[in-house]
Design a protein around this nucleic acid. Sequence first.
RNA 1: GCCGGGAUGGCGGAACUGGCAGACGCAUCAGACUCAAAAUCUGACGAGGAGCAAUCCUCGUGUGGGUUCGAUUCCCACUCUCGGCACCA
Length: 834
Amino acid sequence: MTDHPATPDVQRDEPVGYDPAVVERTWRDRWQQRGTNRAKIADATKPYYALLMFPYPSAEGLHVGNLFAFTGNDIYARFQRLQGFDVFEPFGFDAFGIHSENYALKVGVHPTEMIPRNVANFTRQVQRAGIMVDWDRTVDTTDPSYYKWTQWVFLQLYKQGLAFKKKAAVNWCPNDKTVLANEQVEGGKCERCGAEVEQRFLEQWFFRITDYAERLLNNIEGLDWSNTTRTAQRTWIGKSEGAELKFRVVNPFEGAGSAAVHETSETMAVQDITVFTTRADTIFGATYLVLSPEHPLLEDITSGDQRDAVAAYRQQASKQDLITRKTTKTKTGVFTGAYAANPATGALIPIWTADYVLMEYGTGAIMAVPGHDERDFEFAQVFDLPIVRVVAGTGQDGRTPLAEAYTDDADARLVNSQQFNDRPVDEAKRHVTAWLESKFAGKPVVNYRLHDWCISRQRYWGPPIPIIYCDDCGTVPVPESQLPVLLPNIPDFKPDDSGISPLARHAEWFHVPCPTCGKQARRETDVSDTFLDSGWYFLRYPSVGRDDVPFDRETTKKWLPVNSYIGGNEHAVLHLLYSRFLTMVMKDAGHLDFEEPFTKFRAHGMIIRDGAKMSKSKGNIVHPDDYIDAWGADTFRTYLMFLGPFEEGGDFRDAGISGVKRFLDRLWKSVHAAAIEGAPDAVVMRALHATIKKVGEDVSKLSYNTAVAAMMEYMNVLRRGERHPHRDEVLPVVQLVAPFAPHIAEELWSVLGHEQSVFDSGWPTFDPSLLGGETITIAVQIGGKTRGTVAVAKSATQDDVYAAAMTDASIAKFVTGTPKKIVFVPGRLLSIVL
RNA sequence: GCCGGGAUGGCGGAACUGGCAGACGCAUCAGACUCAAAAUCUGACGAGGAGCAAUCCUCGUGUGGGUUCGAUUCCCACUCUCGGCACCA
């Protein structure tokens, strides 16, 4: 390979050597000088917003999975540009968060030093990969000019009553003396030190996303998103329709005269326990109640002799970390000594407490129907509680014994349920609920699995929550004019055992005059969740540079909602849901005209290595720099896309990369050797038009691997028999390949005599009349087996094809009698049934 | 446990709406060029069998059934695998 720069001479027969390093450097510089990649934010006539999930800039730099995603988005964006759109493909950095902070702690470098370094390195790598980024409009979540507006977003929610404070459990590592995210807990132990994790209750800020549950759920249907992502969102929201039922707490020994009992009944007012159930129909089988150990009524109802046992159990439950509690299925629990009346039967049933009932779902209390719920059945067996059958399937009746919980509800009818006997389950649910409602003992209720979004982090590396606490004025939001609340640059950012943020140790920052009364007050010392940073960044991109507003009204109207969003499936639930929620809130506050931010979303697959996720500890990380050094960015990009379906990802191996390089080499040679004189070959032109059609269709549906294959196939036709291609036969291929291999495409486009960028040249069109020839090949099946093909005219009828088939001895010999039936699929096949 | 994907040559993968399975690429083998090698170009390449040969036959898309003139594609029952959720009442 020659090392001199490409100064092509179209007249020469000798192809000039293709040196990717030179070509790519040349065009990187030229794009920069000419502003080729700058988006026409203000005067676009056909705006197209091609968004990519912005990455976390890790210290290791870009990994091959990042590049796979970026390239896939870049191809789509460049394709849209070739289609004539004014494309905006921005890039940014999600640089706040626990991930960065932990890494900084580990290597002993302050995040304010580390992050800019990582950002610079990422930027270099992304530029080198030839991504069509408008570098004038980047976002860095750790930049005060960005997080000023993240804090503003918080204030908008606060204003609307959607931000509130409450106590909530967090994972606490007693050794590291820090709050842990759920992902940092492995099997009940701290992932770093291995200590047993406990739960602690802290006052935290929440966003009322549950108010939007129904809207978030209903809108899913209208989104152009892949089904898996939509299903994941629906599951996460987890709507379930059921009923809340009331059970009156009753003291069975009331009036028995014992002093102890008398004392209890005096302190105990009339109380109801409300439970949530999706199976109101089974109420006749409810043989006990269970309260979560955190249930507020638990202490009130517990009888004197059970107090110690219940207290001990609550203590034990609180010691457990949040994860283990939910994953250990062994049933434990304690009797409270209290009883409640079943509103359907009037029977007194015992009230227990057990950790299999979670305070955060429903009402924190359940009616247990061991006959028809697996968990209740298990619990009833452990503690020897009565099990009653109230539902029977086909061939069963009220006396059929229960060896396990019977949970089928499709072909089942009620039994042992008085006036509701023999009703199908579905119908009974409604009737029983209505009946209980008439007795003031219940009502239909919808419940969601979705919880309010806890945004407090007792950490350093995030935007401070813009709230001030004043002894006189209470909770005071920081006035918008005083934003941003700057994150102070403190050296000791390690969390300690106080359970509060490191910021609390800095009095000079922590003490602040109250914005309302001016007296000394205290800042909120928690920072906000990284998901808040990333929950609105797509609104910022087009308005980057504006310091007076988070997003400009007119600009936003022009560019949003996002036309196409590409990102990883790991964010299919939380990030997308939070972004949707914040967009809805902004719309309700009058800041936006739309409520769904991402019209179209597609998740790319994950690139793994040797069947495992790439990680430093496994030593299987692929560094794109090495491959770009060896093969060039164009080859590497195209190779990544050729590896397999973009939406599936796959195992990275470099075995086939030489094939892609050969393809680009051949394209290079063909363009340089292309003849201007004479006419293009008709057969080749037919193949060309078919290729233009296929590549366009494939790229639109992100089927990049087959698009590359189609272009390779065409190159084989073009060069068959070492023929010299005509200029008209290769010119459109340069445009087709441009989204995949932008540098070489620009170079070849200029070799072909063009001044402007290939990306402003438009997408080639195909002539449908050229797609097929006059003759077509039709397969002939006899007795269901393919026995050969015949070449016939395009317009051939069944009889023509049959006649043609019979003239071919190798086919005709299989026709041993009179055909019983003949199936003819025009243009495809003829099937003769004997 | 529940909800989704997926399984096709030595390997990655392709196949429209049920219509010639294995496109494209890698690897391998053979040939051309070369003193030689690399690069490049040409050809072969699912398995088994028949034939001197051109060629022909049988089997073949995870397993077992089914629908159909015809199934990688649709239906039923499984196996394995990847991902998500998971004591959610």
